[in-house]
């Protein structure tokens, strides 16, 4: 039985639920979080086992720069959320994508003085630091490019999907911050 529904308005308000995309997105979201959760769990454990390496790492990390990078990524997430709510999706996606590129630039600036100081150190913790932040950086760069591609021809479904992935990347960074930087 098909009840008469206002199809157009339903499609506009709940685009993610269409075509089984909701389930696919949840699988993707949890895959990302489980992988990063395992890496962050390993970092926490190694930090407890090797406090001198953790102190050495913390001495090289730029906390204010990490704060600015966090604010940049959160601002970018704000624009992605605005795009989903239907407010000028193209321009909000462009702003979100460039926010992602700004985050990449800030992180590369941080690496430029961390890499020379840390590559001489033989430590699993330092390797894990570069693995976690580098893997996250690759996610930011890749999804920012996808966001700009979606901005070229935005549809409610595409915008909702790419914004969801972007928020997961934001969420992962919010978890990286206390585990690696604020400890």
């Amino acid at each position: 039985m098909n009840a008469p529904t206002p199809t157009a308005s339903l499609a506009a308000s709940r685009p993610v639920a269409e075509g089984g995309m909701e389930l696919l997105l949840w699988i993707l979201v949890w895959s990302e979080l489980v992988v990063f959760g395992a890496l962050l769990g390993a970092f926490l454990l190694l930090g407890l086992l090797d406090p001198p390496a953790l102190a050495l790492l913390h001495a090289q990390l730029d906390l204010p720069l990490a704060g600015v990078a966090t604010a940049t990524l959160l601002g970018s997430g704000f624009f992605a959320a605005r795009a989903v709510s239907g407010r000028k999706p193209r321009w909000n996606l462009v702003a979100a994508g460039f926010g992602g590129f700004a985050f990449v630039a800030l992180k590369l600036a941080a690496y430029s003085h961390e890499v020379p100081a840390l590559t001489t150190v033989e430590s699993r913790l330092v390797e894990l630091y570069f693995l976690i932040t580098g893997f996250h950086l690759a996610h930011v760069l890749f999804v920012a490019v996808i966001i700009l591609a979606v901005a070229w021809r935005p549809t409610p479904l595409r915008v909702a999907m790419v914004a969801t992935i972007w928020h997961v990347v934001d969420l992962v960074w919010l978890l990286i911050l206390p585990v690696i930087y604020l400890g």
């Binding site: 909701e22 997105l25 997430g77 704000f78 909702a160 928020h167």
Partner: peptide, 13 residues
């Protein structure tokens, strides 16, 4: 805040 405020997916489940 991020999940409740930004993620549209949270409304679905």
């Amino acid at each position: 805040l991020l999940v409740v405020g930004f993620m549209r997916l949270q409304r679905e489940s």
